[in-house]
Every structure is written in C-alpha cells, then in structure tokens.
Design a protein around this nucleic acid. Structure first.
Length: 958
DNA sequence: TCGACGCGC
DNA sequence: TGGGATGCGCGTCGAT
C-alpha cells in the first residue's frame, strides 16, 4: 500500500468535492471484508501468532489496510468521511431461492482461514469502524445499497475490492480501489475489462456467466462475444428480443434456446440497490479508534510493528513497510535459535531425509506445477556450486533441500552445528525425474540461472515458466528491475528476507554454504514460495493483456538457449592480451609524462575534473560546454575540437584515454574473466534488461568489444577458436533501417532494399539529387548520419553536431529528408501520438514497450519519451527478429548434423564456433534461419539480409 | 553511491 | 518563450 498509485493506473478524473444539502460532503469507503480476507489469505505469506500458532496472516494484512485508510483520513484530500467494512452473513441468500445451484461449487474455505473470519470482524471493531452484515444478503448487495444511496445524494463512493461482480456499480462518482495491487478502477478500467460501460456489465455477465459463482449464462459465449453483442444491440432485452436476426447460426440458436437461463443469470449477477440498510448512513461517520481498545487488540494478535506505529500515531506513510513488518521477515532478525534443532521454521520445512524428500517430490508431481529455486555458493551461474534446492507446491507450503552446507573453516562454534544432509548425488538423482517431467511445470524467478546451475549437475529442467520474464513481458519499461524482491513488494506487499540478512554484508559476507540450515531454510524456501505466488498472480495477466504469444514465442524459450551459449563460453588468447596490456602500459607512461610536461605540473589524467582545471583555468583555453551537473566538459568531441585548433595537450589526453579505456576495460579484465576450468570466458546475458527486448551482456560485457579503431581491433583479434575450429560471425545488414522501411511503409526505401542498393548512397541521391555513381564520400556520409539519426529521433541540433555543419544546414537536410520520405514523418507522428495517449508503444511482433516518461511533468521528459517511442518499435522489432533466430538455431544446427555452437550475440550479430570443415554448412544454416526468422508470424516486406564469414579470430570473421 | 566518460549496436 | 536538443546497454574511474 504505497502512497502513489501504480503508474499504469490512469489518474482519477477531477471530481469536485460533492456537497449534500444538509451537511458536509460525503465520501464513503466501503470495504468488501469477505473479498479482502480471501485475497489477503492467498496473496500474503502465512503468518502465525508466535505463542500458539494461530494463523493471522490475513488479519494482519487487513489491519494494515484499515490503518492506512484511517491515517489517510487525516491528510489526504480524497480520504473517507464515512467508512464501513461489509461482510457476507450466511451461505444461503435470496439468490439461492432463484437458483439452487448458485455458488454451489464453492469449496469450503481453507482450514487456516476459518479461524480468521471472526478475528477480522473483531479487528474492524477494534479500529472503531462499523462492521455491516445482513442475513440473507451478500456483502455485495449491502455495498450496492449504500453506494446507490450516497451516489444519488451527490456524494462519492470508493469500494475497496477487486471483485468484478461489483464493477457494475462503477460510475462518475463511484470507484473501486484494489488496495493489494494499488490500482483504482473507474469507468475506463471497467470498460477495458468488459468491453462495455459499467451500466451494461450485468448484461455481459448474464451472457457469459461465471464458473466461480456457478452462474450459467449462455454456453459458448465469452466476454468478447458478449460485449460485441451488447454493443451491437444496445442491451440484453433488445438482444434477446431480436435474437432471430443474428447471422451466425450457432450463436442465434444458443441465444434463443437459453434465453430464460440468460435472464436468470442476469437476476443472479444484478446487485440489489434496494437492499435494506443495516445501519443509517450517519452511523458510518469515520472516527478515530479508541486507542486503548486498539492497542489491546494488536497486542493480543502480536502485531508488534503495527502496534508501535499506532502508538506513535504516525504510521502509514510507508504502507509497504507496514504490510511486510509483521511477516516472517521480521521474525528472522530475532536472535538465532540453536541450529541443530530448527527443522521447521515458519512453516517451511528443511528436508534432510529421503522419505521426506520423496514426499515433497510426490506433492510436486501431483500438483503438476512447482516453483523452485537453487541456492549456490557463488554468483556466477556458469561456475557456482550447488548449496541446495527449494520447492513450493502451494502458497505457504515450501521446503528447502540442503546439499552443500558445511562449516566455515577456522570458525569455532560453541556446539557443533547439525549439518546432516542427504548426499548431493542422491538428491540430484531423485529430483531429476520430476524436474525433467514434461507434465510438471517448473516455475522459477530468473530461470536462466537455475537452468545453468542444474544443467552442470546433469539435469535438463523443463518445461519452465519464468516470473521475471512474465513481469518483463507485461511491464517492460514500467519498473527498472523485475527482481524478486521488487515484484514481491509490489504484488504481495511482502518484503522477502534479504540475502544480506542471512549471509552478512561487505567483508564479513559468507558464502551461502556456510549459512546454517535453519536460516537457509527461511530464506530459500521463502524464495520458492514467493515465486509461486508471483506466478499465480502474474501468469493469468498475460492472456488478459494479449501478451501470451510474445511471452511464449519470444521470452519463454530464451533461458534454455542462453544457458547453452553461456556455458559454451568463448576462447580468448591470454598471452596476447597480456602482451597488449603491457604495450598499452608503456605507451600510457610516455603519454602521461608528455601530458605533465605540457601542463607544467603533474596531475591525474584519469580525472576529468583535474583536466578541466588545467585546460580551462591554468591554460586559459575556451571551455565549450558543461556537463549535466554544470562541470566543465572534457569529453572526446571537445578535446578533438581543441586538438584541431592546434593545441598539443588535448591530443595527448585523447590518446591516453583511448589506451586507458582499452587496458582498464578490456585487456586486463578479459584475462581475469577466464574460467580456469574451461579456459574460456563465460558472459552472462540479461533478458529483462533493455525494455526494447534487446539482450544485455555483463560479467564481462562481450557486446562492447572494440571494433572501430585499429588499436581496439587488436583486442577483438584475441577472441579465437579452438585448434581445428573457426569462429563464424553472421550479422544482419541494416536490419533497423529495413524494419523502418517495412513498419513505416516507405516505398523508396523498400525498393532500394529489394534491389540490393547501397541504402546510404540511395538516400543521398534522393535528397541531394546527385547520381550514385561518382558520389563524393562526404555526401554519402551525411546521408548515413541522417539515416541513423532518424532511427534515434535526432534533432537539427544533434545532426549539426554530428556532422560538424551549421544548425540551419542540418535543419534543411532534415526537411528535405521528410519531403523525400513522407512516410517516415507519418510514422514518427503516429508513434508520438500513441505514446502520449497510452504511455506505451508496441513492436510488429506485439511486444509492449512502456514509456512512462510520456506522462512526465516536464517538456524535456516528454520529448525524451517521443524519441524513445520512435526508436523502440524499430529497435524492438530487430530484437524480436534476433530472438526468433536464436531460439531456432540450436535445433537447426543439430538437424543439419553440425557440431557448431552458438557462442555470442551482439544485437544484430551471432558468433559461432565450428570445426573448420563445417564452416560453409554452418554459414548456410545460420543465414537461412536468420533471414527467415520473422516467418511465419510475419512477412517482412523487405528482404532481411545476413552477411557471414569464418576466420581464425573474431576480428577477421567480421 | 554517483557522475562523467566511452565502448558496442 | 526558450531551454534543450539521437535510441539501448555495461564498466571503469574519480570524487564524495
């Protein structure tokens, strides 16, 4: 419950504070108590009262939410003036008289939830909030009655619930608030869900029915058909009266045959605004709780954090912390219990004998879906050793299976810790069939890591779902990270135990294998538990938000592919790299001495600040520009200008910087990154890093190896193949411009690509009216800069900078460009409009790229969003094409009988290693797969062309 | 921990 | 009006 709304939720329309004739404005908050307790129970981690084990998780979530509402009442402009919590009273209601099967399929509530029902009512009273219920009626009807009354009086109503059955009540002055997701639901959100305005929601529900409540509806009609029909005919009665006019035979017959059942369904879903009010409205006036009574209740429940906040009277400013504070995470900070006794911690189980392990595996097989997580003794997935595996088979039901925990050397314990574990081989052998069973879905957060670890122990995990990738597919661009901690805080309002808490921090940080089994179980089992809950929450959204295909085709297969590449690694020549490093050092020393001589004093060449002082203060050179923070800029373009004016020092600094960069970033670190076991370098690819869908490479980054300068290429030459093998580089030629031609439908560009012309020369020819033959190199260079600039949404200023021409001249170029290629202007305008109205754009493959800056306050932010919106569909489509090629590549190579391996990806390039004799065959396979990668999803209207070459090192293959 | 810088596509 | 004025990453270094 953070203060700010989810960025995805549009702000509420400004509604003037309503006035009633005879009193202050009314803003009534109605909390759907029954709905809340079910959702809180399933969404929040299990929490029990310490003294007697009474389950109180849902009560805790409920108390935090109520407290937040009460705190907001004092400060927020849209705080409640009236407040009540509404509960269902009994199983049987008037609806059962209409239809005896209503809600007949409901399973009994979970065992752990039952004792919490009376506690939530008690909590409500302790907070001084009226608790309403009425025999024979559902909570929804009571909510409807109050909502209608207040609305008709001119007041405002906020229904705290996410129950879709309440959405029919939404209107100009009636909203819903989902406090667990921090989303407000207004008319637009209802329309998005049901495809009709709220007043037509019952008609749609009557048609499609509801399997949860056992409302029959019309067979074979879903929400889409229902809303289409209602929108066409206006309302349900008209539709049923004119059902004979419907063209589709099946649909017509269904509506006629089931007309009565549909009318009954409408009666079942229609909420009754005439439900008698259990209390007069005046009785719901919001008021402060009685402090003693509230404290007594909270202490009885052992909600210490909330009790303290209530005592301070200043709680609620950070709702997320409030919600998490009474969870097991807080308990973990308590003094450690004796390790050898703690087997069952917070309901999580530490598995240390084979029968227990078999029982958990059986439960996973039985459930058909299991969340899992691996714990390791280091960070690198390609080298870390396994410490243990955790499994979650249902929310709150998780275990940790330690396999590699041991005592730290030199660490004396008072009593020997009990570290008895099932042997590693035994655990692997027993887990393997379940983890590889095609009928059991394995859910992981960042599955690539766990797949890489387990694959080194001979387990080929599958099928998998990845909560990180699901989140990335749904919300790429909305949040910086899709890490588990952040997702848990957002969606489960729960802060998992931090790794630091169990392993320590900084110098004292210990490897996970030295963490005691009790603490390790708390941490590891919780991760699997949280992963399962996140999956339950996020996975259904893919379908609802039309992102299932993107996830299934472009995300879900990637971890497997990348594991293959990361584990393969790439060979580098350490001797040659060390020699380069030495050469660079020697020359840097010479340049440093020269720089000190020219400056007249020693200084640190690596410090932009000191360089600024020397150049602009001591030597009096004209400082051209400043950086974002106002410091004097000393970047390469500026030093280049000064050098061209005839100054000596800037040239020396530029040369030194180049060598310093190469040595510091590349030579030394690449040698250090060689894994001694494989003698190769294993990068890690980030899948949820770039919002456009591009991969990112890190530890080390192999996507920014130098290529432009002669010195830099010396480093690239150090990437080599094994003896008897070659490296093969295959890269898409001009893929972004080709996709722009397709997406923007630019005839001249499409024709040029179809004819295989030099695209930059063609652009120059179109723009400047000169023939391609005999064109000056400078003319082509300018056209090339414009082509690239267009892809990035460049301005006249930027282009002028890039080309070293005047701003007016650059402006004229851009003007000419748009005149020659009007389709590009249209494309850019379209993206700008789209991002400003929706705050996201999509690629031709359906990938959604959120650009929240489009809703930014400053013009600069929105201008930035415009440029990102122009670039994202192009860069993103290229990334999508590349992903499709990569996903198909391993099988294509294998089917062709080739031993070649895909090693690296650099956005538009793939690097393979193959036996020399395979080179030609690999090139043929790579080109075929890459050039046809968009198919069959899309037919790109320009050819995608791949250039490929084999050589002994990466530079020569390029 | 942050900003400046620079490497890649 | 006028400031700001090419997209997406990662890693290093110095300054704090």
């Amino acid at each position: 419950m953070t203060d700010t709304l989810d960025a995805a939720a549009p702000p509420l329309p400004d509604v003037d504070r309503p006035n009633t004739q005879d009193g202050p404005p009314i803003r009534l908050y109605l909390v759907d108590g029954s709905g809340f307790i079910f959702r809180a129970f399933h969404a929040l981690p299990p929490l029990t009262r310490k003294t007697d084990g009474l389950p109180v998780g849902a009560v805790s979530g409920f108390c935090n939410m109520i407290w937040k509402l009460l705190v907001d009442m004092k400060s927020q402009p849209d705080a409640p003036t009236h407040l009540a919590v509404v509960f269902d009273h009994s199983e049987k209601t008037f609806r059962n008289k209409l239809y005896d099967q209503y809600k007949a399929h409901r399973p009994p509530p979970p065992e752990d939830l039952v004792p919490q029902f009376p506690l939530v009512r008690e909590a409500t009273r302790a907070f001084g909030v009226p608790s309403l219920e009425l025999p024979g009626y559902e909570a929804d009807d009571i909510i409807a009655a109050y909502a209608c009354k207040v609305r008709d009086m001119g007041g405002e109503v906020v229904i705290v619930s996410s129950d879709k059955d309440l959405m029919q009540l939404v209107g100009d002055r009636v909203f819903m608030l989902d406090t667990m997701k921090n989303v407000k639901i207004g008319i637009d959100q209802v329309a998005e869900k049901f495809g009709v305005t709220p007043d037509k929601v019952v008609d749609v529900q009557a048609l499609c029915g509801d399997s949860v409540d056992n409302v029959p509806g019309a067979p074979g009609i879903g929400i889409k058909t229902a809303s289409a029909l209602i929108n066409e005919y206006g309302d349900l009665d008209t539709l049923l009266a004119r059902a004979g006019e419907i063209k589709q035979q099946k649909r017509r017959e269904t509506l006629i045959e089931f007309a009565d059942q549909i009318r009954l369904s409408r009666q079942l879903v229609q909420l009754d605004c005439d439900t008698p009010l259990p209390e007069p409205l005046d009785a719901l006036v919001a008021d402060d709780p009685n402090p003693e009574e509230l404290q007594a209740f909270l202490e009885k429940m052992e909600f210490r954090t909330l009790a303290r906040r209530v005592g301070d009277g200043k709680a609620g400013t950070n709702g997320a912390a409030t919600a998490g504070a009474d969870t097991p995470a807080g308990e973990a900070k308590a003094p450690a219990r004796p390790q050898h006794k703690a087997i069952d911690v917070n309901g999580y189980v530490c598995v240390r004998d084979v029968p227990t392990l078999e029982a958990w595996i059986a439960r996973a097989m039985d459930a058909g879906v299991v969340a899992f997580d691996t714990e390791t003794d280091a960070l690198s997935a390609t080298s870390a050793g396994l410490c243990g595996v955790s499994l979650a088979v249902a929310p709150g039901e998780a275990c940790y299976i330690p396999v590699g925990h041991c005592e730290a050397e030199g660490l004396q314990l008072d009593a020997p810790a009990d570290l008895q574990q099932i042997p590693l081989d035994e655990v692997i052998a027993r887990l393997k069939p379940m983890l590889e069973d095609p009928s059991v879905l394995k859910v992981a957060q960042n599955a690539k890591y766990d797949l890489a670890v387990l694959s080194r122990y001979g387990i080929d995990v599958g099928p998998i779902d990845d909560t990180m990738l699901i989140s990335f597919t749904l919300e790429g661009g909305l949040r910086k990270s899709h890490g588990m901690d952040e997702l848990s805080k957002t969606w489960l309002e729960h802060e998992p135990i931090a790794f630091k808490t169990v392993a320590g921090t900084g110098k004292a940080q210990k490897s996970f294998k030295h963490v005691g089994l009790s603490e390790a179980t708390c941490y590891a089992a919780e991760d699997a538990d949280v992963t399962l809950r996140l999956w339950e929450h996020l996975k259904p959204r893919l379908a609802h938000e039309h992102l299932s295909t993107v996830y299934e085709r472009h995300e879900r297969p990637m971890p497997q592919v990348l594991v293959g590449m990361e584990l393969a690694g790439v060979k580098v020549d350490p001797d040659r790299l060390r020699q380069l490093s030495n050469d660079f050092s020697v020359r840097m020393g010479e340049l440093e001495a020269e720089a000190h001589r020219l400056a007249g004093r020693p200084f640190n060449l690596g410090s932009p600040k000191q360089i600024g002082d020397i150049l602009f203060k001591e030597m009096g050179l004209a400082s051209g520009k400043t950086t974002a923070t106002g410091a004097m800029s000393t970047d390469a373009s500026l030093l280049e200008d000064l050098a061209n004016q005839g100054h000596e020092l800037p040239r020396v600094l530029l040369d030194w910087r180049q060598l310093s960069k190469l040595k510091g970033t590349y030579t030394d670190n690449l040698v250090a990154a060689i894994d001694p076991r494989t003698n190769r370098v294993h990068t890690s690819y980030g899948l949820a890093a770039a919002t456009t869908g591009r991969l990112a490479s890190s530890d080390p980054n192999l996507q920014n190896i130098p290529i432009r300068t002669e010195e830099g290429r010396k480093i690239r030459k150090c990437f080599i193949a094994e003896p008897g093998h070659v490296l093969i580089s295959a890269d898409y030629s001009q893929i972004e411009l080709r996709l722009l031609a397709h997406i923007g439908d630019i005839p001249q560009l499409k024709k040029a690509f179809a004819d295989g012309l030099d695209i930059h020369a063609m652009t120059a020819s179109e723009m400047f009216g000169v023939p391609v033959e005999g064109m000056p190199a400078e003319t082509r260079r300018r056209a090339k800069a414009i082509n690239f600039g267009i892809v990035y949404g460049i301005s006249a200023f930027g282009l002028a900078n890039q080309l070293g021409i005047s701003r007016d001249e650059a402006g004229a170029y851009i003007k000419t460009y748009f005149e020659r290629f009007p389709g590009i202007r249209t494309y850019m305008d379209r993206m700008q409009q789209q991002v400003r109205s929706q705050a996201f754009v999509t690629t031709i493959f359906g990938r959604k790229v959120h650009i929240p800056a489009a809703r930014g306050k400053s013009q600069a932010e929105r201008a930035f969003a415009d440029r990102a919106a122009i670039n994202a569909p192009i860069q993103g489509a290229a990334a999508d094409v590349m992903r499709r090629a990569m996903i198909r590549m391993p099988a294509a190579l294998k089917d062709a009988g080739l031993k070649a391996k895909m090693l690296l990806q650099v956005h538009d390039e793939l690097v393979f290693e193959a036996p020399e004799a395979e080179a030609e065959a690999v090139i043929a396979v790579a080109r075929r797969i890459m050039e046809r990668a968009a198919e069959p999803a899309l037919q790109i209207s320009v050819p995608l062309v791949v250039e490929a070459r084999a050589a002994a090192n990466w530079d020569d293959a390029h």
